[in-house]
Amino acid sequence: MVNDSGQLYTMEGVAAGVIMLLTAYIVISTTSIYTPGDTHIPDMQLEQLGSDVLAMMDTPDREGGTSQLVGFVKNGTETCGGNDLRNEFLTNCKMRAGDEDTKLRAQVYLSYRRTDGTVNTTPLSLPDPEFTGRENAVRVTRWVQLDGILPGIPDIEHSSRPRAVLVEVLLWRA
């Protein structure tokens, strides 16, 4: 059955095979394959979502008004403060078509500068009981300008100077 003739056909066959494999390789490499390395992409999307929601909450309803975010931050840890900020933030995050995203969690922190130059960071919302610290959380931030005396914010000096503070939100899916 096997003889010496037809090597040219064989070579042609090999060449055709290599071309087909190359084609298959090019076709397959154009589509993406979901791998563990791709978990960065949901993180990226979560970060963008959080940033957008903070930016939206920091936009005043009318010219010259104060934004919702400033209103929450001003009250610090008191009523209508950090916890309500977190709830409102999460409600806004979930306000889109599709999945209800009930696993979304957030924690709000506030950073401000004291007179001695140190920067103090304090949690504004009550700690999430399920938070272990090992969650794949992303951090989104927003600068806010405050004025006046702010008794609701822990450890802040009670001088009524205009100040810029940083709202930090840790956002993760449980």
């Binding site: 490499s29 993406s32 394959i33 791998t35 563990p36 390395g37 791709d38 960065h40 992409i41 993180d43 990226m44």
Partner: peptide
């Protein structure tokens, strides 16, 4: 290659 697909982009 697939292990690296998307990682460098997302990073």
């Amino acid at each position: 290659q697939s292990a690296l697909v998307g990682q460098t982009t997302a990073e």
